[in-house]
C-alpha cells in the first residue's frame, strides 16, 4: 500500500486568464506504514495536497497513484479509494450529523455497503481505538467536548478500515492537554494498526515529537522533505518562508555558536536536555 503523486499540479480558474497555482509539480511518495507531518502556513497548499490523496480533488496535470494504479483512470473506484485513504477534516462539526455517536460512526461503513451488524462492529471497534468511553456512545455528538468530537470524527473515518489516515490539523482549537491526548492517540493507532498516517499541522514542536518525516509546503512548492532533524537543520531558510523551527533548535544552535559542545540536531526537549547535561559534564 502506498500513495504516490507524480508531478501533480493543481490550478484554480484554468478557464480564465487568471490561473492561480495551488500545487506546482509536486512529486511525493508515502510508503506503507509511514508517519508523516505536512507543514506549511495557511494558503501554502497543504490542504489541497492532502485532498489529492483520496481523490477529492483532481490534479490539473500529473498523476496520483494508489498502490501503483492511477486513481483517475477510467472506471477506477473512488469510493473504495476513500475507504482506504481516510481523510479527517479540521472541524469535526463539518461531519457529525447523526442523533447519537454510534450511528454517526456507522455512516462510513454503511456507505461501503456493510450490514447493520458489521457496521456496528466496525464502529465499536473504531470508537474503542480512539479511546472514547462507552458512556458517550449513545449521546448526541453535539453534546461532547471539542476533544471528544474530534475523536468521534476520527472514529468515523477509522471505521472504514483505511490503510492510511490523513488528518487535517487535528489539534486546531484544542487546549495543550487535549492536543497531546489526540496526538498520543494517533501515534498509538499508527503503532497498533500499522497504518500510515499523514498529519497536516502548523506546529513544528508537535511534529518533532511524533513524526518520522516532515514535508514542508510553501506557495504550492515542496521546499523540504526529510526527517525532522534534516528539515530543522535548514532553520534559517524555514524562517524566511514564515515557518519557525522548534525553539529547541534555536537554543542548541546559539549554544553551539557560543562554544558549548552540544549537538545541534536535537529536536525535542529530552534530546536537548541530554545533550546539554553531557556538555556541562553532569
Amino acid at each position: 500500500m502506498s500513495i504516490e503523486l507524480k508531478n501533480v499540479t493543481y490550478a484554480y480558474g484554468t478557464e480564465s486568464a487568471y490561473e492561480t497555482v495551488a500545487l506546482a509539480g509536486i512529486s511525493l511518495k508515502i510508503p506503507d506504514g509511514q508517519f508523516v507531518g505536512i507543514i506549511g502556513h495557511t494558503g501554502s497548499g497543504k490542504s489541497t495536497l492532502v485532498q489529492h490523496f483520496n481523490g477529492l480533488m483532481r490534479p490539473t496535470r500529473g498523476q496520483v497513484l494508489f498502490d501503483g494504479e492511477d486513481i483517475w483512470a477510467e472506471g477506477y473506484d473512488l469510493k473504495h479509494l476513500r475507504s482506504q485513504v481516510g481523510l479527517v477534516f479540521q472541524y469535526p462539526e463539518h461531519q457529525l450529523f447523526e442523533t447519537d455517536v454510534l450511528s454517526d460512526v456507522c455512516f462510513g461503513p454503511k456507505n461501503l455497503g456493510f450490514s447493520q451488524e458489521e457496521c456496528e462492529e466496525l464502529a465499536l471497534d473504531a470508537l474503542r481505538q480512539v479511546g472514547l468511553k462507552e458512556k458517550y456512545y449513545k449521546l448526541s455528538p453535539f453534546e461532547l467536548s471539542g476533544g471528544q468530537k474530534r475523536r468521534v470524527a476520527i472514529a468515523g473515518v477509522l471505521a472504514m478500515n483505511p490503510k492510511m489516515l490523513v488528518l487535517d490539523e487535528p489539534t486546531a482549537g484544542l487546549d495543550p492537554k487535549g492536543r497531546d491526548d489526540i496526538l498520543d492517540k494517533i501515534k498509538e493507532l499508527h503503532e497498533t494498526r500499522g497504518i500510515s498516517i499523514a498529519i497536516v499541522s502548523h506546529s513544528m514542536e508537535d511534529m518533532a515529537k511524533y513524526v518520522e518525516r516532515i514535508v514542508v509546503m510553501n506557495h504550492g512548492h515542496m521546499p523540504f522533505d526529510g526527517t525532522p532533524r534534516e528539515v530543522f537543520s535548514h532553520y534559517r531558510k524555514l524562517e524566511k518562508i514564515g515557518l519557525a523551527a522548534p525553539q529547541i533548535t534555536y537554543i542548541m544552535h546559539v549554544l553551539a555558536e557560543k562554544g558549548m559542545a552540544v549537538s545541534t540536531d536535537a529536536t525535542t526537549v529530552e534530546e536537548a536536555k541530554e545533550s546539554i547535561l553531557k556538555a556541562l559534564g553532569h
Binding site: 485532498q51 483520496n54 477529492l56 469510493k79 476513500r82 475507504s83 481516510g86 481523510l87 479527517v88 477534516f89 472541524y91 463539518h94 461531519q95 450529523f97 455512516f107 462510513g108 456507505n111 461501503l112 468515523g156 473515518v157 472504514m160
Partner: peptide, 27 residues
C-alpha cells in the same frame, strides 16, 4: 467543506433516484 468531509466517508451526493438523493442530503 461539509460535502467533502462526507464524501471522504463514502457519501454519494450524485447517483441514485430522487428519494435516495434527498436522503443523501441529510448528512
Amino acid at each position: 467543506k461539509i460535502m467533502k468531509a462526507q464524501m471522504a466517508r463514502g457519501a454519494d451526493f450524485e447517483s441514485g433516484n430522487l428519494v435516495k438523493k434527498v436522503r443523501s442530503m441529510v448528512p
